[in-house]
Computed example of a mutant assay.
Amino acid sequence: MRSRLDTRPALVLAVSCSLLCGGVLYVQAEPGRYATTVAGLATGAAVLGGMAGRSRAQATRAAIAAAESAEKAARAEARTAVLAERTRIARDVHDVLAHSLAGIDMQGELVDALIDTGDLAGIREANGQAHSLVRESLRQAQWTVHALREDGLPLRESLTAMLESSGHHDALTVVGDVRELPARSTQCLLRIAQEALTNATRHAPGGEVGVRLTFAEEATVLSVRNKPATLPVTVATGSGMGLIGMRERIALLGGTVTTGPVTTGPDSGGWQVEAVIPR
């Protein structure tokens, strides 16, 4: 079993051996004393050479280990980024499908109910709403593709189009100086608005919806509020991922989302979703 001294003790030992050998040869060797003494002093050179070689080998091993560690860290970071991107894409796809399909399904159920009553005008209106939702879903798919490509999205215009296609005209109020937001922030607010409108349609059909977009100095705030239902509510089950998706999405941007019933004011009995994204 080999044992190795640390650099400092080995250096002291090499110098001591050189001095000792040189001193002994200086005292003992009469002829050629100086040449013999120099040869004695050089005995530690081999030790010093070995120490230098060992230091180079250690440095090489350390460099290789650091490179391998950096490569492993890069692979782990890449895997994390891929998983995060997959989660984001899955969330976007869920939002588009849940919003569109839930609305179309509700219009189909309404048509079935109206057929029994013979209300042709109501049937045409429900059918028109279904076609409107299909057109909206196509626009939402385009928005999703743009967002995945990190293209710029017009937030105010997109919210207006979303509300109009859902039958809520002049429902958007903008407060503050409009500014361009990062693509991820815009996409996040659009998805939250979309989910809130889907829930309003599902749980409060016929209830008036209002959306308020506030550009403050420290944050951008989106508030979606609906009044109580004025039409019969059809019991429907969702995937349960809507609210979770909202919170996960906005948490990635350092924001918050709150939901709850409206207890005061003209919208009392309704529901509100408010999202805040720091500037």
Results as ranks from 00 to 15, higher is better:
109 E>V: 07
84 A>P: 01
83 L>F: 13
96 V>F: 01
106 M>T: 07
107 Q>E: 15
90 A>H: 02
76 A>Y: 12
92 D>K: 05
93 V>S: 03
103 G>P: 00
100 S>E: 01
95 D>P: 01
76 A>R: 12
108 G>D: 09
80 T>G: 07
104 I>G: 01
90 A>S: 10
82 V>L: 14
82 V>F: 11
88 R>V: 05
100 S>Q: 04
94 H>E: 07
97 L>I: 07
95 D>T: 15
76 A>W: 08
79 R>F: 14
101 L>R: 00
101 L>N: 09
94 H>Q: 08
104 I>R: 00
107 Q>H: 12
93 V>P: 00
82 V>C: 04
89 I>K: 04
94 H>P: 02
87 T>S: 12
84 A>M: 10
98 A>L: 05
78 A>M: 09
93 V>L: 15
101 L>S: 07
88 R>D: 09
95 D>A: 15
82 V>K: 10
82 V>W: 08
104 I>L: 08
94 H>I: 01
105 D>Y: 15
101 L>A: 08
80 T>D: 11
105 D>C: 14
79 R>A: 15
83 L>D: 11
102 A>Y: 13
106 M>I: 06
106 M>A: 13
99 H>P: 03
108 G>P: 00
96 V>D: 02
99 H>F: 12
106 M>N: 09
91 R>V: 14
110 L>Q: 05
86 R>T: 07
100 S>L: 05
78 A>H: 13
84 A>E: 10
93 V>E: 05
104 I>T: 02
88 R>P: 01
87 T>F: 09
97 L>S: 04
84 A>W: 07
92 D>L: 10
90 A>Y: 00
103 G>I: 04
76 A>D: 14
91 R>T: 13
107 Q>L: 09
91 R>E: 09
101 L>T: 05
88 R>M: 05
78 A>K: 08
104 I>C: 02
77 E>Y: 10
99 H>D: 14
85 E>A: 10
107 Q>Y: 12
95 D>M: 13
90 A>V: 03
85 E>G: 03
103 G>C: 13
89 I>D: 04
105 D>P: 03
88 R>K: 06
80 T>E: 13
81 A>N: 07
98 A>T: 08
106 M>W: 07
106 M>Q: 08
92 D>T: 09
109 E>W: 12
97 L>N: 00
88 R>N: 12
103 G>Y: 00
100 S>K: 01
91 R>P: 01
110 L>W: 05
109 E>P: 02
97 L>A: 08
82 V>D: 13
100 S>W: 01
82 V>T: 12
89 I>S: 11
83 L>V: 13
84 A>R: 12
107 Q>D: 05
